[in-house]
Design a protein around this nucleic acid. Sequence first.
DNA 1: GTCTATACTTGGATAGAC
DNA 2: GTCTATCCAAGTATAGAC
Lengths: 206, 206
Amino acid sequence: MTGLSQTTGISRRPAAAARRNNRKLALMKAAAECFVANGFAASTMREIAARAGMQPGSIYYHFPSKKDLLAAVHEEGLRMITGATRATLSRVGATASPWARLEAAAAAHMEMLLEGGVFFQALMRELPPPGSPHHAEVTARRDAYEAIFSNLLGALELPAGTDLRTLRLMLLGAMNWAHSWYRPGGDRPADIAAKFIRNLREGLEG
Amino acid sequence: MTGLSQTTGISRRPAAAARRNNRKLALMKAAAECFVANGFAASTMREIAARAGMQPGSIYYHFPSKKDLLAAVHEEGLRMITGATRATLSRVGATASPWARLEAAAAAHMEMLLEGGVFFQALMRELPPPGSPHHAEVTARRDAYEAIFSNLLGALELPAGTDLRTLRLMLLGAMNWAHSWYRPGGDRPADIAAKFIRNLREGLEG
DNA sequence: GTCTATACTTGGATAGAC
DNA sequence: GTCTATCCAAGTATAGAC
């Protein structure tokens, strides 16, 4: 049972519910692929439908509009990356050193973002438009995710005068921007994360 | 005489050329505003024209298509930020310390990106689509700009084993991502740049 | 749940006057 | 150089059969 079933209500017939959600999820995946490739506005319901193997009109049984499809993609991506990072942290354990926990979370973040699939690339590409009802929802969920990193950074012993907020935005910015230059075949996502953390931790002054 | 006149040929009547270029520049600015606010695909020639105070059909005297308008915005923005950062570096002087030069360039970069106007915001928003003729052009120009930072980082004395490329991408990522969270009224762009550089330079380990 | 067919809207681009 | 008028393509969403 995925988190998705919670959005459509719980069925007393799990098999049927799973099949329904699979179709819906396939549709979201097809939409995410289009959004990543062409951006939201340039993506067409026709192409999304084609990728999902259905006719354009059929989409509207599952989602009332294209906007809702975008919001669903974002919600699912954020739900998944939040789950993955939290899972990594509980695997590492609360007794690990703060730096080790930060590095593990950064590695999980990069791994999802860069190799986790289209949902995460879609997160980086385009938010629902500011002012729209979906924007607030997605932003709130994103803030909640980023709070994980606030806590991890807050647990470090830092030099006096370090601006924690700027530090968090610096690290997340460096990581998130990687989606624009990362290509498989070079450093693994976890390697990149480790280098980022190392640069920050040890400093560069000779 | 702006760099722009070079794109339309040099006139023997500077005043007329300047007036022509002013209209063209106003059009590019109007387009940049739309692209920043709504993204490329959702921006309409009608709205761009309205912002520039002309009729939709008139745009096509200056630009053959919407795509070319996007490319022109990117080229102008990149030309301006390259000029600004280079100017800052020559003002600082070649004899300044490598760290001081890096910090000055970072401050100039942030100042332009965050407070320089719509052209720079447009740079962050959307590239011409991969594979298009304009994409290669813009990417080459961007790479040339980023090489400034390669050189500045290369001039530092860094710990053995530091990956220069990753370091450059980390710093540029952190800076460029700031466009998504920066709001006037808090730290000035140069302050943010200084904090980033300080975090990197001194390290965070207690 | 998915299909076919289509209504309706929006928008890029052009033609030709001024 | 700019305007008016318009063509035509593309796209969201709906209606109703199956």
